[in-house]
């Protein structure tokens, strides 16, 4: 019943978020033939090493490889990392903090239902809302690519989508933990926003980039996957397992904090 209610409250968000991802994806695919000749001149303007690697890949003489590198940037590095994380933070912020702010939490927790059950029923529905659109839009890129006479390997797209979903899920779970710990949604958004901004900042500084969480979800991860050089197990063991572990730990911390929370 909590799951059903949570779904009804968040289904519009799922649809909007899916459409937003798709809206970003379609012009990116359609504009590729136009951008392709200009890519080399863009490359010379960029200082950081990883961006140079990225531009080198999309300027590759092999048009198929260049297109797959380009899609790794557009679909995962840019699209999901921006829109997916925004959606995850928006949804995760309210999980507990909104109930507390709206003074509905005491009514809900006064019913005969365990706190773990309340959190889990809200969590899994919203986690699906965050994750499923990543797969749907990623898969839609496969037939969309045929419009411009290119192809994307379905299996590689699925592996990249899985990894990207795991990354967004980790940030979503971190937001849920903050939603339990902080009393208002604004404080949650501020805390999570601060962490993300700092992480993005670190990512763009060459010397300290290695310390950024976004290393788990950048072009150096998705490029080789879409190029077919990295398989599922290789990617999962290299970084997916850390994301999964962090997600589980963050969820357990949120569950514990929620069970111990005083009204």
């Amino acid at each position: 019943m909590i799951a059903g209610k949570t779904w009804r409250e968040s289904c519009w968000m799922a649809v909007t978020y899916t459409l937003l991802l798709e809206v970003l994806l379609v012009p990116a695919i359609v504009l590729w033939p136009t951008l392709r000749p200009e890519a080399a001149s863009l490359a010379r303007m960029i200082p950081a090493d990883f961006v140079k690697r990225l531009v080198d890949a999309i300027t590759s003489p092999d048009s198929g490889a260049a297109y797959r590198a380009y899609m790794a940037i557009q679909m995962f590095f840019k699209g999901v990392n921006v829109v997916g994380i925004a959606c995850a933070v928006l949804l995760g912020t309210g999980v507990v903090a909104r109930e507390r702010e709206n003074q509905t939490l005491e009514f809900l927790l006064g019913r005969p239902v365990s706190r773990s059950r309340v959190l889990w029923d809200k969590y899994w529905v919203l986690a699906l809302v965050v994750v499923v659109p990543i797969f749907l839009t990623s898969w839609s890129a496969v037939p969309l690519s045929w419009i411009i006479d290119h192809s994307l390997p379905f299996a590689a797209v699925t592996i990249a989508a899985f990894h990207n979903a795991l990354f967004v899920l980790t940030l979503f779970t971190f937001t849920v933990l903050c939603s339990v710990l902080f009393r208002s949604q604004v404080h949650v958004a501020f805390a999570v926003g601060t962490v993300i901004v700092i992480q993005v900042g670190i990512f763009f500084v060459q010397q300290i980039r290695v310390a950024s969480l976004f290393r788990f979800s950048d072009f150096d991860v998705y490029g080789p996957v879409l190029a077919g050089n990295v398989g599922f197990m290789q990617l999962f063991l290299a970084s997916g397992v850390w994301l999964l572990g962090a997600t589980v730990l963050l969820y357990l911390a949120a569950d514990r904090a929620f069970r111990r929370m005083d009204l």
């Binding site: 019943m1 209610k5 005491e106 009514f107 006064g110 005969p112």
Partner: peptide, 26 residues
């Protein structure tokens, strides 16, 4: 059964849906 003193209800829900939701726990 507990009626909190300073509480609010789910304002976006219809009265009947809220009632079904609240009673289904028992």
């Amino acid at each position: 059964a507990y009626l909190p003193g300073e509480t609010s209800l789910y304002l976006h829900m219809r009265g009947s849906a809220f009632l079904e939701f609240a009673l289904r726990f028992y």
